[in-house]
Amino acid sequence: MRARTAAALAAALFLASLTACSSGITTAQPDPAACKKAMAKAFDDATAAGDKAEKSKRPPACEGVDTKTLERFAGEVMKEWMDSPKGEKRLKESYEKGVKDAIESATPEPTAAGVPDECREWIEDELLDSSTSIEAAAGHSACGELSKEEMDQAIDQVTDDLIEQGVDTTG
């Protein structure tokens, strides 16, 4: 998802900059091949910058090239780049980074004591509820991959914290 977003952002910035008004002063005949080459370099630079890509200006080589041609070149440049080994590599890296970021943001953050807040809250709820059973599925979801030893330490820590607060943990 992030790869598509980055590519779309780069494409939007790229296309908007290329089809923007030119200076209106044209001293030479346009060179479509040079224009397309300059567009390819600008697109490659924008995709390399990723989220930090800035809106670029119409390459000087594209002065005098009509908007329809620029739009066609933009589509061709993007397709050629995406089909190239460099494009495939950057898209793959962007995708992998997006997946890694998503996993990291979904992983409970440990507290200063090393136990995720969500896990501490689950332990506290289990210690304070009046049932005699433990909701293990919810515990696994809240506490992730804590080992039995880590879980026992977390339970002891939460129990001690509750006792310090004057809470009766005997059910």
Rank of each mutant, 00 (worst) to 15 (best):
M82S: 12
K41R: 10
R2G: 11
T132L: 12
A137V: 03
D83I: 01
R72W: 07
G139Y: 01
I163Y: 01
L128Q: 04
S131T: 14
R2L: 11
D168F: 09
S23F: 14
S141R: 09
K55V: 07
A42K: 04
P60N: 10
Q165D: 13
C143V: 04
G166Y: 02
A102E: 14
C62S: 00
K57F: 11
E145D: 09
A8H: 01
V158A: 00
F43W: 08
I134R: 03
S147N: 03
D101R: 08
A106S: 12
A154E: 08
L18D: 07
T170R: 14
Q157V: 04
S147W: 11
K52A: 15
E164H: 05
Q157G: 04
A16G: 12
D160H: 07
E126N: 13
G114P: 03
D45L: 09
G87E: 10
D44E: 14
G144L: 11
E104D: 15
S94F: 03
C62Y: 04
C35G: 04
D152M: 15
P116G: 05
D66M: 09
A53Y: 01
I134A: 08
S23R: 04
D161I: 09
P110I: 06
L70V: 05
A53D: 06
A33T: 09
E118Y: 00
E88N: 04
L13K: 10
I155T: 08
R120G: 02
A34P: 00
D125P: 00
A53V: 09
V65H: 00
Q157H: 10
S105N: 08
K41E: 14
A6E: 15
E124T: 12
E145Q: 07
A53C: 12
G87N: 03
A34N: 06
A142N: 02
A42F: 02
V65M: 06
S133M: 07
Q29N: 11
L15F: 00
S23Y: 07
T27N: 07
P110D: 10
R90H: 05
E88L: 09
H140R: 13
E96R: 09
T169I: 15
T67Y: 04
S94P: 00
T67H: 10
A38N: 03
I155D: 02
K57A: 15
I155P: 01
D129S: 11
A154V: 06
Q153E: 15
R72K: 14
E121H: 08
A38C: 03
R120D: 08
L127C: 05
A38W: 06
P85K: 12
S84W: 10
E124Y: 01
R120I: 10
P60I: 11
E118R: 13
W81A: 07
M1F: 14
